[in-house]
Amino acid sequence: MTATVEFELEGLIENFDVHDERLKDHFYETLEAMRRRGPVHRSEAHGGYWVVVGHREVTQVARDWRHFSSAGGVVLAGTKPQKYVPVEYDPPQHQSFRRLLNPHFSKAAAATFEPQLAVFADKLIDAFIANGSADLTEAYAKPLAAHFFFDLFFGLSPDEAAQCERATNQAMFSSSVEDQIEGFSQLERYVRYLVVRRRELPSDGGFIDSVRTGEVDGRPVTEEELIGIIQLMIVGGDDTAVHTIGNVLLELGRHHDIRDRLAADVSLMPSVLEETIRHMPPAVSIMRTVTEDIELGGQQLQVGDRVILMWSSANRDETVFDDPAEFQVGRDNIRQHIAFGGGVHKCIGEWFARMIVSVAVERLLRRLPDLVVPPDAHIDYRMGQSRGPATVPVTFTAS
């Protein structure tokens, strides 16, 4: 390691911040260096907080909601005005909302969207298949994920969807705290407008109206709670789906043997997907707040301390996964990845994520079985609490 890179890493570690632009090129390198030094580190960014990078310690914090609460927020910089429901509640309130929401996010519920999503995927492919090349982020992943979340799931118009997307992108991926605050504020204001408008219209039977008329613990869902739920689903769903699709396609475009095996046998899709989200998790991190003095990974944490769980680091922990930087389909212990989190707060949308990505990849490989990411292609990444390729340039046989 050169002195220049070592200096770069020292600065990145001491002031670790997932919004640091330098992490786009040094992300996994920085996390590996941190794991070598220990499982828990102190960052002086944003007023100071703890960064948890070891698999065992990340898993411990994720499962121990009594000592590591979500009620203090899950976004480090305090950049959003609205409490997100139910991720920023702890039990028993958290479970009450999960009982209301879980039926909407079951494996069976996800499967009902497959036919419509497949039809839309084919239309997108029709638009570029004759070209012999495409940026699959812009031409495929983004519009496909947006169609699912904003059209099929939320029932929004294209203009409404575009406004939500712009605000979310600013909130999640701006390096400026001020820009993040403004992005979250814009999203909150627009979702509030959508909820108020829904009150004046007949129920369409969709997700928003189902939750709006639902109950938790024997009382109606409040308007503020509904606004928090919708924002969470937008922030937690759209970008992570785009990033996961992009990551899978990057892996397949670089590992042609795996691409060919999957094109010939789609039953391999679950194995390919699980290894992709272990290797490059779309959700990078989440925050917890310490509720009682506790030792973690050799560090003494105190009440009120903020803690960041690095899913991306835990999934590459050398003590758990052999050759963790390598993309290896068929790992014996793949179920030990925690890309969807763990404990009571495990991601509610994991079945939707698996469905969306599976449909996206399977439909694409039917039509573009020889897609290739050019070896000299530079891949830029969007970096924040979610991470994924800003572009996925591929070439293929035109038809």
Rank of each mutant, 00 (worst) to 15 (best):
V266A: 14
G183F: 01
D20V: 07
R259Y: 03
E326Q: 13
A134D: 00
D370G: 02
R56G: 07
I294N: 08
A110N: 07
S70A: 15
D20S: 06
D322K: 08
S174K: 11
W351R: 14
E350H: 09
A171R: 02
R199H: 14
F27N: 01
V53F: 04
D64V: 09
H26F: 14
P92S: 11
R278Q: 03
E292D: 14
D260K: 06
R288M: 11
D135H: 11
R259V: 05
S358P: 03
E44H: 09
R382L: 15
F149Q: 05
D151C: 09
I338E: 01
K24P: 00
D17V: 02
R261I: 10
S175D: 12
V248N: 01
M355S: 07
E350P: 03
P270F: 08
G304L: 05
A108K: 15
S313Y: 08
G236R: 00
A161S: 15
P270L: 10
R363E: 11
R382P: 03
D217C: 08
D20P: 01
T30P: 02
Y193Q: 15
V235S: 01
S313H: 04
G343D: 03
S43R: 00
L232S: 09
L365I: 09
H55D: 01
T112D: 11
S176N: 10
G206Y: 03
G72E: 02
L100F: 06
V18S: 13
P374Y: 03
F148P: 00
I258R: 11
